[in-house]
Simulated scan of single mutants.
Amino acid sequence: MSHDHGPPPAASRHTRRIVTAVLVPAALATLAALILLWPGDVRAAPDPGGGQRALGTVTAVAEQACPAGARQQRCGSATVRVSQGPGAGTEQPVDLPQGPGTSALHVGDGVVLLYLTDAVPGGRAYAVVDRQRSTPMIWLIVLAVGVILAFGRWRGVTSLAGLAVSFALLLLFVVPAILEGSPPLLIAVVGASAIMFAALYLTHGVTVHTSVAVAGTLASLVLTGLLGALFTSLMQLSGLGSDDSSALAVTNSTLDLRGLLLAGIVIGALGVLDDVTVTQAVTVAELTPGATSRWELYRGAIRVGRAHVASAVNTIVLAYAGASLPLLLLIAASRAPVSELLTSEYLAQEILRSAVGTIGLVASVPITTALAALVAELRPATAAPEPRPGRHARRA
């Protein structure tokens, strides 16, 4: 969530006209693109195995020793009472889940089942595939919302509204449109622009200073997308840099994975850009009353921007590193040369994301600061009044 900068100084009518003339066409173009590219009814492909999802609760566990030489860690079966889905109200036997990362089942555990309609004769028709997590997740979300509202008050309400719009656009426009076969980079730019307009104006209000931040964010997003496309081509990345991408390539062969990589870069960069651009726009507005020239105003605001962007760059790099921590551990455990690891498809994608996102973030500071300084209303310097002669001054 962006910082609360307080009410900035009011802008003149001339400044409002300039900003409106620039942003209204951009907003209308974004709206028109949303309407033209809005996906139809995208239905998920049917599961070729015929599996159906069901929910249940473990009522009994019968664990036994595994045979000598067996790979699995736990052997035996459990009984699950199905509460939702195929076979609701019945008790079904299941094998204990196997594989790395699986935990032991206990009586009372809520589990997610996969009902196999074409099960092998003599085999189990149900299999445990996951745990039920809805209840703790709901409490976690309620706690997070409560903290935001308690601290942010009305600004917290508006930020949550912007967050809701962002998720709605991602789930209803960006993801279905990409699945439908639209160019992922174009969809990401349009979706990110719509999210930017909605989130910034809902969170910070419809002001000239927010509009300047919107313009700076939009310019930085375009720069990020262009750099991402250029270096994705130069580095010859295919987009198959993770198991998720490989799975998508198998299930949807028409999906543009390179465009999907670029779309992720653009949307990921938007999360940090809005905070930086709003800070710079309001900083310029606060410094305007004491500035004597636009260059002086720009220099003063850019000093604030350097301090802000120093911490923001660290934030964006650590965010990418945190999301890729398993990959970093896998690379650290590898015996391959460092030069080979750094140029591999897996790590090259993460370097691309971090580097391009950082460049777009740094560029947003001078871009937004310059735009804000250009539309700032500087007060003309007034000449100092001449001192009056004293009462006892000699007359000529």
Rank of each mutant, 00 (worst) to 15 (best):
A363C: 10
L371C: 05
P48G: 04
T117G: 13
D243F: 12
Y201W: 11
T279G: 14
T158Y: 08
L185V: 11
A150N: 09
V317C: 08
L329C: 14
T20F: 13
R395Y: 07
R388T: 11
V61P: 00
P184N: 05
H106E: 12
V112I: 13
A188H: 02
L226I: 06
I18M: 13
A229T: 10
A21D: 09
I367N: 00
L202W: 03
G49N: 15
R17C: 14
Q98S: 13
S238D: 06
G205Y: 09
S83D: 11
G87Y: 04
D47R: 08
W139L: 09
L31H: 04
L371N: 03
G152I: 03
D95F: 15
A333W: 06
S344Y: 10
Q280W: 02
A321E: 07
G322V: 14
I302C: 07
I267E: 01
A125M: 08
E340T: 14
D47W: 07
G305M: 00
G99Q: 00
A144M: 09
G99T: 00
A44Y: 07
P289N: 09
A188G: 06
A27D: 01
Q280A: 09
T158I: 10
A127M: 15
A301G: 06
L36Y: 12
A45F: 03
L347A: 08
S324N: 11
V82C: 02
T207L: 04
V214D: 06
A247W: 12
V147G: 07
T20Y: 11
G110Y: 00
T292A: 14
I195M: 05
V24M: 05
S324C: 10
V365C: 12
T288I: 03
E340C: 08
R388A: 14
V338I: 15
Y126W: 12
T79G: 08
L328G: 08
G225D: 01
S12V: 01
A393M: 10
A88Y: 13
A119W: 10
L113W: 00
T283K: 02
L330M: 11
G191W: 00
G259H: 02
V112G: 00
I141F: 15
L327T: 10
A164T: 10
Y115T: 03
D274N: 15
L227N: 06
S193N: 01
T20M: 13
T90A: 09
A44P: 04
R306G: 14
E350M: 10
L248M: 13
G360T: 02
Y126P: 01
V19L: 13
Q92D: 07
R74V: 07
A29S: 08
L163M: 10
I331H: 13
S166V: 04
G50W: 07
A68R: 09
T203C: 03
S246T: 15
S344H: 13
V313D: 05
A144C: 12
P8V: 11
F167W: 13
A355I: 09
L325V: 03
T210R: 04
A312N: 06
A33R: 07
A11I: 04
R294Q: 07
S166Y: 05
S2C: 11
A199F: 06
A332E: 12
G6A: 14
F231H: 03
L262F: 03
L140H: 13
P380W: 07
L223V: 12
Y346V: 15
T382N: 13
L202I: 04
G49M: 15
S2P: 12
A32L: 12
G89T: 04
V272T: 10
S238F: 05
H209R: 14
M196E: 03
S193K: 01
Y298L: 15
G101F: 08
D109F: 00
A150P: 06
A199V: 12
